[in-house]
Design a binder for these strands. Sequence first.
DNA 1: TGTCTGACAGATATTGAAATCTGTCAGCGG
DNA 2: CCGCTGACAGATTTCAATATCTGTCAGACA
Lengths: 197, 197
Amino acid sequence: MNEAVVLTPERILEATEDVLRRFGLTKATVVDVARALDVSHGSVYRHFPSKASLRDAVAKRWLDRANEPLCKIAAGDGPAPERLEQWLRTAFTIKQKKVCDDPEMFATYLALAQDAREVVEAYKDKQVDLIAKILSDGVAQGVFEIDNVKATARAVFDATVRYHHPAHAEEWAKPECPGRIDALLALLLKGLRVCKP
Amino acid sequence: MNEAVVLTPERILEATEDVLRRFGLTKATVVDVARALDVSHGSVYRHFPSKASLRDAVAKRWLDRANEPLCKIAAGDGPAPERLEQWLRTAFTIKQKKVCDDPEMFATYLALAQDAREVVEAYKDKQVDLIAKILSDGVAQGVFEIDNVKATARAVFDATVRYHHPAHAEEWAKPECPGRIDALLALLLKGLRVCKP
DNA sequence: TGTCTGACAGATATTGAAATCTGTCAGCGG
DNA sequence: CCGCTGACAGATTTCAATATCTGTCAGACA
């Protein structure tokens, strides 16, 4: 039982990402994954009940990795407005970078996410919680004026959908984008801040 | 030359919409349109240089029709905040109604719009202009405080993308939607208003 | 005893030949 | 003369036969 050759979910996920990268979503099969691991495809089914669940797990891994830097920003303790702006800009940049660096792989993950609705929903909820954290910090700091933090966090998330939802990915590279992001963030931050007369 | 049987672009568009409604986008052919009009398909090409241009024209008609009520609201003269809110809610409702009443036809028009990029772009610009009109009215009324009306109109459009862009249509029927729309509009209006100390 | 294999049935995807469609144009008929 | 027709070439789509894949399970193997 050499630990290097034990078949673990982790190793299977690694191999699955590899296969996806090489073959693309439509061509990648469970048999390919098994071949990459040098086992029979039956063994894969010992760890994941179906191809769909394997795909979900890959999607979750991917989303969790992408989320890490955002968790750190939300957990920080600077002034909330700057932190919110940084959080949103980072969220945009992460996505934009992924689509620029490897559009093919991004398309693969996008298609993957289409079927992993539950996983994506959980991920979005986590994002909203992070925003809510920053907002409530801002309220505590006396810089934000917010009735319902949870609902407002959701509103901020919704308002920025255009720059983090992959359905709009093809617009992200356009030259007018940065200016539009600036205008959007300015509008949102003004809506959150306490009025200074 | 009975005017009822003259082949006009208008009649062709009418017939095309009919054919699209009956057969769906993928099955609808130029030959079908010609058959519906009882002419040869060559005659259709006398008025539209290609199938793509015919589709573009249908998309434009559809978008223009959907836009009419919004033009009226923008042209009104009540208080800008209420008018903006009504404008946005109407925009959402128009789309939502279409997708509810006839999801199949909505899907057809959606696919149609995918290929009619220019037409859609022009339509969006028109929408932003309508928002800008209301915003500048608000500035004149002393209720809005806006640096750059054009950029801010674009920001309002972007911020509400989730509720008017068809990519998010499947979320519109969810029960939590109205509450989220309320929160979003409240945030945006607060961002636009002058601060009352 | 528990993990892995490999053959299997039913579901899904691929392929290439045949059918249909798009876009053109010479010529018909009013 | 002018708008329309219908036959045509090349592009695209359909369809059914064929191949591949998913998910299961009885049994090998350690």
